[in-house]
Write a protein that binds this DNA or RNA. Structure first.
Length: 412
RNA sequence: CGGGCCGGCGUAUGAUGGUAGUACGCCUGCUUUGGGAGCAGGUAGACCGAGUUCGACUCUCGGCGGCCCGACCA
């Protein structure tokens, strides 16, 4: 894409009302727009990153055998009353809306209820299981205090996967497979090394749940990490008894700030029993379906990556999610030899379907480099007089600063 | 939800109970062109409502909105 045509502009200064690094950088670089507290719009560059994150997750969900669907944001109150999660005393994060017809509806906080309900229409035999279903969908949570930029909003995009099994052991196999898929996802997103499976409060269905926690000073949670074993314990469940159960020793643990990038839960039969999701086995006996749920916040992930992969100059996306692979920075003037060379390089890369942002604006070099650093595309190709003279372009890696010299042909 | 702070050109920010200024941006022109250029000219601003006052952007009250600390965060 030609940068002269991109409607978003960069800003030199961060907005005064944003403290979180992710929001400051994303706003300055023109990836997001803050609509209200905890509510952000995703502009063209931001959307591209979001779509890339989504696609990585989608590929791993499909590899798992997950089937994608999309459910509604508007929720049926009656369904949630059946699981006792409609009452504000029980769940305080609802956005409830009056219907013109007299009733009320709520904006989805999560989707266990509606999916379980859908499944009752399609699952009735042992032959129909096991199944895994997922979606990318907007969640709404009426947070008392939104904070941390795009990482804790009132409206956010989430991938949620749900598993349905006949037995506990079948469920466990699904759960274990989902855990492995999550590891692959975080690895592909470039945060595998700094993301730890963390034992946390399991709620009513099991002793522990597992969170995927990514090391970051911007984190809201505190965990104790065993770097050798690659596992961690959330501070909220930290105790001698817990350590003993997990086979960890206090000496090996280091306290760290983290952001929750994902979590996986055993749901047992709580939802299937409440909503009547059951199957008939070979003997003709009915059993409730054993469920699990698995979430990754997509918009939060964008925030985590902005937070973790950035420096004082700006963003530095990993290639797997970057809005473009190359950023051509032309130092030529309209119509001169340099800009003609940049045009040609842009045309050739585009022709090959290589994603490239082409800074063809009438601006000075300093401004273009500063913008390029801010926007954080993995490789910058500088097209200037030097390049024309030598026949080789400088290709600068944003994250490391490493400079390679490459000819037009080598880049293609 | 408890506590604190704040609301001014597009953005950032200074000052003030008495003409709302500066920088960046944006527009015009000239010069400049490998790390946010220079000169000249121009554009653009007080969240809403009520009150105090000769006079309110400034003080008071209410509303709306934002930020921070805590709580909360299947």
């Amino acid at each position: 894409m030609r940068q002269s045509a991109l409607f978003t502009k960069t800003r030199r200064e961060a907005p005064a009302d944003e403290v979180a690094k992710n929001a400051q950088l994303l706003i300055r670089a023109g990836y997001v727009h803050k609509e209200m507290a905890g509510v952000y719009s995703y502009l063209p560059l931001g959307l591209r990153v979001l779509k890339n994150i989504e696609q990585i997750i989608r590929e791993e969900m499909n590899a798992l055998g997950g089937q994608e669907l999309v459910m509604t944001a508007l929720q049926d109150k009656a369904l949630w009353e059946r699981t006792d999660r409609w009452d504000d005393e029980k769940v305080d994060s609802w956005f409830k809306i009056a219907l013109k017809t007299g009733g009320e509806t709520g904006l989805a906080i999560t989707h266990e209820e509606p999916l379980t309900s859908i499944m009752t229409e399609h699952v009735s035999s042992y032959r129909d299981l096991p199944v895994m279903v997922y979606q990318f969908q907007t969640k709404f949570r009426n947070e008392l205090r939104a904070k941390s930029g795009v990482m804790r909003g009132k409206e956010f995009l989430m991938k949620d996967l749900y598993s349905f099994a006949r037995t506990d052991s079948e469920h466990q196999a699904q759960y274990d497979a989902a855990r492995e898929a999550y590891k692959k996802i975080f690895k592909r997103l470039g945060i595998g090394e700094r993301t730890y499976i963390t034992f946390a409060s399991g709620g009513v269905f099991s002793e522990f749940s597992e969170e995927f926690q990514t090391l970051s000073d911007a984190g809201e949670d505190t965990i104790f990490v065993d770097k050798e074993k690659k596992i961690a314990v959330n501070k909220e469940v930290m105790s001698d008894a817990t350590l003993q159960k997990l086979g960890l020793t206090k000496e090996a643990l280091v306290e760290k700030k983290v952001i929750e990038a994902g979590n996986i839960f055993h749901l047992g039969t709580r939802f299937s029993e409440a909503l009547g999701l059951a199957y008939t086995d070979e003997q003709g006996k009915r059993h409730p379906v054993v469920m699990g749920s698995y979430g990754i916040g997509v918009t939060r992930m964008l925030g985590i990556l902005a937070e973790v992969m950035s420096d004082e100059k700006g963003l530095a996306w990993p290639e797997s999610v970057a809005p473009f692979k190359y950023h051509i920075v032309s130092l030529g003037q309209k119509g001169d030899e340099v800009s003609r060379a940049a045009d040609a390089l842009y045309a050739d890369l585009t022709q090959k379907s290589i994603e490239v942002l082409y800074d063809d604006r009438e601006a000075r070099a300093g401004e273009k480099f500063a913008d390029s650093d801010l926007i954080g595309i993995p490789y910058r190709i500088v097209v200037g007089k030097e390049a024309l003279a030598s026949g080789e372009y400088e290709v600068v890696a944003r994250a490391t600063g490493a400079v390679a010299k490459k000819t037009h042909g080598e880049i293609l």
